[in-house]
Deep mutational scan, measured.
Amino acid sequence: MQGVVKVNSALNMRSGPGSNYGVIGTLRNNDKVEIIKEVDGWYEIRFNGKVGYASKSYITIVN
């Protein structure tokens, strides 16, 4: 499943599904990501070869 990031500035990509996990990357508005699965309001995603987590509130699913 594919998604597009929708933010005003930047979205942190984290090592786990929560804001208490470390930041491993930064996503920008309109970045395209691969959604692997949903975990407690977060998406596990793949972006630029990295796998991490981002809040699903800021990612819109596209077909």
Rank of each mutant, 00 (worst) to 15 (best):
I24D: 03
E38H: 05
I24M: 10
Q2I: 15
L11P: 04
M1Q: 14
N63R: 04
S55E: 11
N30G: 13
N8W: 06
V7W: 03
G52S: 04
R28F: 14
N12S: 14
I35G: 01
K37V: 09
V7N: 09
R14E: 02
G16W: 02
S19F: 14
N48M: 14
K37A: 14
T26A: 08
G52W: 01
G41K: 08
D40E: 12
G25T: 10
R14W: 14
E34V: 04
M13V: 09
F47D: 03
D31F: 04
L27E: 00
G52M: 03
G52A: 09
A54N: 00
G25V: 09
E44Q: 08
K50H: 12
K32F: 12
G22M: 10
I59A: 02
I61R: 07
L27Q: 01
P17Y: 01
I45H: 00
S55Y: 09
N30F: 09
K6E: 11
N48P: 02
I35A: 02
V51E: 10
K37H: 12
L11D: 04
I61N: 06
R14N: 08
V51A: 13
R14M: 15
R28M: 15
E38K: 04
V4Q: 09
D31L: 04
G18P: 00
V51G: 08
Q2V: 15
V5Y: 00
V51Q: 10
K50M: 14
V23T: 10
A54D: 00
R14S: 06
K56T: 11
N30D: 15
R46I: 15
Y58H: 15
S55H: 12
K32A: 11
G18A: 05
K6D: 07
Y21C: 04
G16T: 01
I61L: 12
Y21P: 01
V23M: 05
G3M: 03
Y53C: 02
I59S: 01
G52T: 02
E38R: 04
R46D: 15
S57D: 15
Y58P: 03
V51C: 05
V33H: 00
K37R: 08
Y58M: 12
E38Y: 06
Y53D: 00
V33Q: 00
V62C: 05
T26Q: 10
Y58Q: 11
W42Y: 12
S19I: 14
N63Q: 13
I45P: 00
I36S: 05
G41M: 10
I59P: 00
T60Q: 11
N63A: 12
S55F: 09
V7G: 13
A10F: 13
G16L: 03
I59K: 00
Y43W: 08
N63I: 11
R14K: 09
E34K: 03
T26W: 08
S9H: 15
N12C: 04
E44P: 00
S19G: 10
E34P: 03
G52L: 02
S15A: 13
K56V: 12
V62Q: 12
S9Y: 11
N29H: 13
R28H: 13
V4W: 03
A54Y: 01
T26S: 11
Y53T: 00
S55M: 12
V7P: 04
V33S: 00
N29D: 14
V4C: 05
R14D: 01
A10K: 07
Q2R: 07
N20P: 03
Y58D: 13
L27N: 00
V33R: 00
D40H: 11
G49D: 14
L27C: 04
N8M: 11
R14F: 14
G41Q: 10
S15D: 14
G41T: 09
V23G: 04
M1Y: 12
G3V: 04
P17M: 03
L11A: 13
W42G: 00
L27W: 01
K56G: 08
R14H: 15
N20I: 11
N12V: 12
W42R: 01
D40W: 05
V5I: 09
T26H: 14
G18Y: 01
E38W: 04
G52F: 03
I61H: 08
V23A: 07
Y53F: 14
V4E: 09
T60E: 14
G49M: 08
G49K: 09
Y21Q: 04
V62K: 07
I61V: 11
K56M: 11
K56F: 04
N48W: 11
P17S: 03
N12Y: 13
I59V: 11
A10S: 13
S15P: 01
S57H: 13
R46Y: 15
V39E: 08
S9T: 13
V5C: 04
S9W: 09
F47S: 08
L11S: 07
V39Q: 10
Y21V: 02
L27Y: 01
V62R: 06
V39A: 08
K50S: 12
Y53L: 01
G49S: 10
W42Q: 02
V23N: 05
G25W: 05
Y21K: 03
N20D: 15
G52R: 01
I36M: 09
S15W: 06
K50F: 12
G22T: 14
Y58W: 10
M13N: 01
G25L: 11
L11N: 04
W42H: 04
S19D: 15
G16V: 01
I45W: 00
G3Y: 02
R46P: 07
I36K: 04
N30R: 07
I59D: 01
Y21R: 03
D40P: 07
G22K: 10
G25A: 13
V23S: 09
E44F: 07
A10H: 14
S15I: 12
S57I: 11
K37M: 07
M1I: 13
V5D: 01
V39K: 08
G52E: 00
Q2D: 12
G49C: 06
M1R: 06
I61C: 04
G22N: 12
F47Y: 12
W42E: 01
I36D: 04
Y43I: 04
G25K: 06
I59E: 01
N48S: 10
G22V: 14
G3A: 08
N12E: 10
G16K: 03
V5E: 01
E44M: 05
F47K: 06
E38P: 04
Y53Q: 00
V23Y: 05
N48L: 11
V7L: 06
N20F: 10
N12H: 15
N63F: 03
V39I: 14
V23H: 06
F47C: 04
Y21F: 15
N29E: 11
S57T: 13
D31S: 06
K6T: 13
V33E: 00
K32T: 15
Y53M: 02
I45M: 05
P17G: 02
R46W: 15
G22Q: 14
G3F: 02
I61T: 08
V39W: 10
G18D: 07
A10W: 09
